[in-house]
Design a binder for these strands. Structure first.
Length: 882
DNA sequence: TAGATCACG
DNA sequence: ACGTACGTGATCTAC
């Protein structure tokens, strides 16, 4: 059998891969892009070349015999970034798992190992393939040695035999050394002859064959200047050639027989691929991601569990212990009033399934309601709310897999139990597998269903200890136990309570809107001269920019932009434009807020029950869905009237709204310790006016409304992580002018500038930024070489600690507020949270008390170096609470 | 199902 | 030089 040796230039391929691929990060913060690129390359070459012997050569440190000879060798080379150097141990770990020999030799480069082994291979009748990204390797090519050079990053390789080198350069492999001797190599800081590039060098070599030949025949070289240069740099050329020469007899201890390659063992490589999160590679190798893994906990179809029935339930009562994993399986995405399939209960070897029919088993209800009995769950709020609709109390929740997963990485969008399990090396059948997806969704037989629910409870039970440790390591345990978990209960109560909506009021407004929209539609069609769908940006664009020939301000991927900021610039150009803007505005109100809200009024309660999502935003804020009650109109009067429909659920009660004033800028003042900003808030000044005074250098009474408006935009920009372009867009001014504003801002608010810089530096160092309560956000793009990705990450690094701390504070206030209301036996109810404000419904006799208590609790939620300020208002509807 | 648009903080 | 403000969710159209 043919003996075939493949030698991979480890450093070279890892380098290429690193710069060719975006910086990938695993959950645990490992950088893996070079490992990934290296591995794909390795697998491809294994498949295509099927070597019998295989070795990966690495450089060993900086000092080599070449640096001894020439101290500037590789002198100007950029330092290897930490994100890359951290990946070399990972590559070696992966090679070990594949049972692939790797080798490095102190004092020598990978090149010399490759040169030496390929020479030995030749002598022993091997064919050899060298894989590298470095053209220098071409000097090793012979009839039996081929070099594969990477192209286009690492996605392709080009094979070089002596013939190919002859075709491409008209040189022999040995002359590659002379080529470099003449040209030098800036990346290795090899001087060569200045002014001689590839073209001149090739010409010279075609004529004189070698560096020595060129030097001997200097007088024959065409061009006086070139002659002089060669003469003055003759020594450089000789030394460069020497430096470029790869050793063929380095003291390499590895023998060719050591490099024999059989094949890899599945069990050995899967844990490594999993650790690096190389899902696509697992697929490619035909591994079922998890099943094959040795560390995977198998929870099989035939999991043993007891199904609770009327008859047997008394004998299992004693198995309801503490702590216990509880899986409340709700049969709908929207859990309000949703059916419950059943409950899975697991603790150690106890595995119970309580089917729907037994859900009101008194012993269970009592156990569920007992706060002393500790429960671990997945999605505390969903479990509590779904049970609350069935009048079953669930208390004593002391761990939530969903919230824990979210806190570990709030940027992750997927926190399904089966996927969380996978991240911790466990396998769990997904809900999609059991229920089917989309139209095929159905409920399986009870035995299958029960097994699945018990498996989920089992996964919760097993995940708990692992995740608890992870959270403690990340310093996120207090955030979970003291804030997010108690908050889940508070939110659940708010959602279950719901908000009363006056359907008749919505109907009235809807009727008015229908009329106005019909009239607008007719007028727009008349002006356009044709009937078309005004809601279609495509059709609208054609009317405005083709038919009516209005100037194109902005384009989108798909065609003309017709967004509001574009139309506002065209308002004067044609009388159709303001009508379209009005149509858009009213259409939005009609479809999203009138029709949309009416659909969400619950049949049984006559109220709207939103869901606050506690595990979606990357910053720690909540979000609200079905319906979104955090974006009810307020800025424009027509829309604001929608709030007239939000009313108290008891006769004679009031809606009370309390909002933090300038909370984000106050937080910025605190964390940046900027003296000007601290001073502004300590004096309780209007912060935008103060900024105008500072930026424009005027006295308080000289601040015009334009100056204040611009200062306000600057303040917003600061919080968002400012850029001159963004500010220029917002204020409709030139970028230069915007840059000037920013410069003037930072020259006054130097502490703020320092904060921005330090926040970015922190992200670069740690890979994440944190809020005051240690909430984390990872920013894997912070060191990207892609300008856009990096800039985005930088702005995020500036914004997230501010926005996230604001989220921390209002969440604290909510938990404290709920506790105070309970302690003081208040009838008032917390209804909604809208990022910086809380909405309550309040009986008249508690108005006075609540108007003091709510701001008091909110202002004291967290102590900063500036006071927190809360404004309170109340009225007969949300509209009037202003 | 993606993209454009627009509602909120 | 690069092309953007930070964070969301709902609706509509067109593929």
């Amino acid at each position: 059998m043919e003996k075939k040796l493949m030698i991979i230039d480890g450093n070279s391929i890892a380098n290429r891969a690193f710069y060719a691929l975006p910086l990938l990060t695993t959950n645990e913060g490992l950088y893996t892009n070079a490992v990934y690129g290296f591995t794909t390359m390795l697998l491809r070459m294994l498949e295509e070349e099927k070597p019998t012997h295989l070795l990966v050569a690495f450089d060993a440190g900086k000092v080599t015999f070449r640096t001894e000879e020439y101290k500037d060798y590789k002198g100007k080379r950029m330092k290897t970034p930490g994100e890359l150097s951290s990946q070399f141990p990972l590559i070696k770990e992966l090679l070990d798992a594949f049972d692939i020999k790797h080798y490095e030799l102190k004092g020598f480069e990978a090149d010399d190992i490759i040169g030496t082994l390929s020479a030995r291979a030749e002598a022993n009748g091997f064919t050899t393939l060298i894989v590298s990204g470095d053209k220098d390797m071409l000097q090793l090519v012979s009839d039996t040695t081929t070099v594969a050079l990477t192209r286009k990053g690492i996605s392709e390789v080009e094979l070089y035999s002596p013939e190919e080198i002859a075709i491409k350069y008209n040189l022999t492999p040995a002359q590659i050394i002379d080529l470099k001797g003449l040209m030098g190599d800036t990346s290795d800081n090899i001087p060569g002859i200045p002014g001689v590039g590839e073209k001149t060098a090739l010409k010279l070599l075609h004529e004189f064959r070698t560096v020595e030949g060129v030097l001997e025949h200097v007088s024959e070289v065409k061009g006086k200047k070139l002659q002089e240069k060669i003469e003055t740099h003759a020594d450089d050329a000789r030394m460069s050639k020497e430096l470029a020469t790869i050793l063929r007899d380095a003291p390499v201890e590895v023998t060719i027989e050591d490099t024999i390659y059989q094949s890899y063992k599945k069990e050995k490589i899967i844990p490594v691929l999993e650790r690096f999160a190389f899902k696509s590679l697992m697929d490619r190798l035909g591994f079922d991601a998890v099943e094959a893994s040795s560390e995977v906990v198998q929870v099989n179809e035939d999991v043993e569990f007891i199904t609770i029935t009327e008859k047997n339930r008394d004998e299992w009562m004693g198995r309801l212990t503490s702590p216990m994993a509880v899986m409340v399986e709700v049969d709908a995405e929207n859990y309000h009033g949703a059916p419950i399939h059943g409950i899975g209960l697991v603790s150690g070897s106890t595995r119970l399934y309580v089917p729907f029919e037994q859900i009101s088993w008194p012993a269970l209800s009592e156990w569920l309601a007992n706060p002393e009995q500790q429960k671990w769950v997945y999605d505390a709020k969903r479990s509590q709310v779904a049970l609350a609709w069935k009048n079953i109390k669930l208390e004593g929740i002391c761990f939530d897999i969903l919230l824990a997963s979210y806190l570990s990485n709030p940027s992750e969008t997927n926190h399904r139990l089966c996927d969380v399990a996978q991240r911790y090396n466990m396998h769990l059948t997904s809900d999609d597998m059991v229920y089917g997806k989309g139209a095929k969704r159905s409920t399986p037989d009870m035995s299958v269903l029960g097994a699945h629910i018990v498996r989920k409870a089992d996964a919760i039970y097993r995940l708990h200890s692992k995740m608890d440790i992870t959270l403690k390591d990340e310093g996120l345990d207090e955030l979970l136990y003291d804030l997010e978990l108690p908050l889940a209960t508070v939110l659940g109560a708010m959602e279950t309570r719901g908000v009363r909506v006056d359907r008749e009021r919505l109907d009235e407004m809807g009727a008015e809107l229908t009329e106005k929209l019909a009239s607008l539609t007719a007028r727009i069609h008349r002006l356009a001269g044709v009937d078309f769908n005004i809601n279609s940006p495509k059709q609208l664009g054609e009317i405005l920019f083709d038919k009516l020939q209005l100037p194109v301000i902005k384009k989108t991927k798909t065609g003309y932009s017709t967004s509001a900021d574009v139309l506002e610039k065209l308002e004067q150009s044609h009388e159709i434009v303001p009508l379209i803007l009005e149509f858009r505005q009213l259409g939005k109100l009609q479809s999203t807020y009138i029709e949309g809200l009416k659909k969400e009024i619950h049949e049984e309660t006559g109220k709207i029950h939103t869901s606050f999502n506690q595990a979606v935003t990357a910053t720690g804020r909540l979000s609200s869905t079905e319906p979104n009650l955090q974006n009810i109109p307020i800025r424009l009067e027509e829309g604001r009237r929608i709030r007239q429909a939000f009313v108290p659920s008891e006769a004679g009660w009031f809606i009370l709204a309390a909002d933090y004033s300038q909370i984000e800028l106050r937080i910025l003042a605190h964390i940046s310790q900027d003296e000007n900003l601290l001073d502004a808030f300590r004096r309780d000044m209007d912060v935008h006016t103060r900024t105008a005074m500072d930026v424009f250098g005027v006295k308080e009474d000289e601040v015009t409304s334009l100056m204040r408006r611009q200062a306000k935009a600057v303040n917003f920009g600061i919080v968002y992580g400012i850029s001159d372009y963004g500010l220029s867009q917002n204020l409709n001014i030139t970028r230069k002018k915007a840059a000037e504003f920013i410069e003037r801002y930072f020259s006054v608010y130097q502490g703020v500038r320092q904060y921005m810089d330090s926040s970015i530096a922190e992200a670069k160092k740690n890979g994440y930024v944190t809020t005051m309560l240690k909430r984390r956000r990872y920013l894997p793009d912070i060191n990207s070489r892609n300008f856009n990705l990096r800039s985005f990450a930088e702005r995020t690094a500036m914004n997230t600690p501010i926005q996230g701390t604001a989220a921390d504070i209002i969440k604290l206030a909510m938990v404290n507020m709920a506790q105070r209301m309970e302690e003081e036996r208040l009838e008032s109810r917390m209804l909604l949270q809208v990022h910086d404000e809380l909405i309550f419904e309040v009986p008249e006799h508690e108005l006075e008390q609540m108007c003091k208590l709510v701001p008091d609790v909110m202002e004291k939620a967290l102590s900063l170096d500036v006071p927190l300020k809360v404004d309170v208002n109340y009225g007969k509807s949300w509209y009037e609470a202003k």
